[in-house]
Amino acid sequence: MSIEFLDIHKAFGTNKVLDGVTLTVEKGQIVFIIGKSGAGKSVLVKHLVGLIQQDAGRILFEGEDITHYTEREFFALRKRCAMVFQHSTLFDSMTLLENVALPIRKHKGLSHGDSLAAARDKLALVQMHEMAARFPADIGDGLRKRVAIARALTLDPEYVVFDEPTTGLDPVSAVRVDRLIRQMSDDTGVTSIVVSHDLRSIFGIADRIVMLYQGRIRLDGTPADFRGSDDPVVHQFVNGLPEGPMEL
């Protein structure tokens, strides 16, 4: 069982972002999608949950073609495949607990009270249960991101897409997020697709790394493959070198 992106093309106006990306993600893996800013990493993963529609190509989810799914059909898929966004995307008018309870209420049709009770357990998972009654504006970016992760995990998804989960976090919080992703994979077999620039995370927990460059996959391999690569673009990126062949 896997997720397959087959020859995905996507352009915004004249800006060609994805130019024939083919990628298979096996169940239970932690796959990092890396690349410079604007390489199309977030665009690629948003296709999987129907937030962006590709111009050409197909996507198979556990063998089923979801290319032409309607919004209603994607609702069912999003119960199994959650997403943590680059911004924390919490709703300002709701408390932290209500934010986490929203997907439970909407997806499972539970009452307001029952969904709050279920949400409290998920907040505890990211050590945020004591702040449940606070509003997003009352806490810092790092804490908001932890709540956003709790919200994504409310429905016990089998797949989670993380869009730059450690960006903006302090080193301790970042390590906690990495550990949570690893733990989910080891304990419950959750498949994680992580968009990231964070080299410490990438080489810390990735099972597999896929590098996008100029709309295509530049290298697909293990962390060891990336460390040992003699491709100058890959070498420049993984070593964080300001000089090199990589286009800005």
Binding site: E71, R78, M83, P103, K106, R151
Partner: peptide, 14 residues
């Protein structure tokens, strides 16, 4: 622009 609307869609809220 801050992806909150996308987060709503992910939460099954149209």
């Amino acid at each position: 622009v801050t992806e909150q609307v996308d987060a709503l869609r992910m939460s099954n809220a149209q």
